[in-house]
Design a protein around this nucleic acid. Sequence first.
DNA 1: CGCGAGCTTGACGTTGTTCAACTAGAGTGG
DNA 2: CCACTCTAGTTGAACAACGTCAAGCTCGCG
Lengths: 230, 230
Amino acid sequence: MAKPQLTTQCIDCFCESIAFQSLSKSEIDLLNAHRVELKFNKGEVICKQGSFATHLLFVQKGLTKSYLEEDSRTQILCINPPGCFLEIPSMSVDNVFHYTVAALEDVEVCFFDLSAIKKVAQENAKFAWFLMKIGHEAQILTFDRFFSLTQKQLHGRMADILLCLSNRIYGSYEFVLAFSRKDLADLTAMSNESAIRILKDFKDDGIIETDGKGIKIVNLEMLKKVSRFG
Amino acid sequence: MAKPQLTTQCIDCFCESIAFQSLSKSEIDLLNAHRVELKFNKGEVICKQGSFATHLLFVQKGLTKSYLEEDSRTQILCINPPGCFLEIPSMSVDNVFHYTVAALEDVEVCFFDLSAIKKVAQENAKFAWFLMKIGHEAQILTFDRFFSLTQKQLHGRMADILLCLSNRIYGSYEFVLAFSRKDLADLTAMSNESAIRILKDFKDDGIIETDGKGIKIVNLEMLKKVSRFG
DNA sequence: CGCGAGCTTGACGTTGTTCAACTAGAGTGG
DNA sequence: CCACTCTAGTTGAACAACGTCAAGCTCGCG
């Protein structure tokens, strides 16, 4: 694993971020003084569900996945684009990580000491509000997934995920997956084989084109229809 | 529907609540001046998913259910004991309710004007932190349900819900459900008939005793085992 | 006494998983 | 440069899990 290093100052990295618009110089200095920057290789676990949460994560670069795990079963909660905060809910409650985060590609993460975050947040209400807001946004996303996974059949679930990846992560109707079919299956709460079969169905129906890890949505309307009624 | 009325002052109702420990007299007055108290009858919808969120809800009395709905499909997120805040995630993001809340029994709800809440929270960091914390607690509960519903089979899901009701809601191994089998089915993402069959299985296996809406857990260890491996 | 809503049960069909076999491509060592 | 191996991806067939449908039941209520 990479050695701790601080290549940048918070004030360089985040000065444009909404997060830090509300922070004073001294508050930024405090956060900056209590953080660690690390690089992770593709596949590595960044923080583990159940372990003691001493830091809040900010992913500067690279895709990550957050997932729940228990008894060798895993459920991916979310694919996270770079520029996101992770493990927010651990912050205020019990200082235990409630999901595992792993790197889908090479990733750069900034770990902020929770005591420092907490100190600033309990003095600066605007910053607390900001943290709350990004936590809520994540939670609202979770609601959609909750509904999709519990109420829809395989085709509908897969359609939802493809739409979500297209919108939130890749910002295009054509993209190359950074992860395996198994991950796609863990995202949609189905078996490996089912995920493959559904993709094939979509391909046969002219909804998508696939080429290895490449996926192109060619019939968006149809995909949305499947998402709704599948 | 009951007429708006203010039977109590916030300072009476909440003076013992953690929420308001961090509030000044003037802040309490502000919240108090911008709130409405309403009573709802069993079965009534308190706030509707998709509608404009102008208030934060505090349930003073009575059980409620929060659920997601779309195209006549419903998924219950949570059964809420009295003394809880609801629709927290709507507060900071887009002012739209993201789930529906309905009364499972006669209920008393206090609606706090969001502008007032926001004003206080953006000035009083301790209060913002408190709101964040209760939001996070709800989110962590959701993770457990997320995993349960997506990764376990019917028996495991039902066991989880029975344990949850016993722990969080009724605080006893013996309780009388405030809702129907259909609700139990919507909680566990299964069909009405399956819910009934699973309960019967549990009864046949000596894990629970049932009498109409009454449920008694007689073999807790077994139920936990089913929760884990079901 | 009859009505209706919620509850219960069995039979049946569908959906989705599991298992096993096979394929393609990427890395490795001779 | 060619076997060899390992992993991810793919396919089909058998099976289990679960939902749907239809019918009957119970109990509270007018």
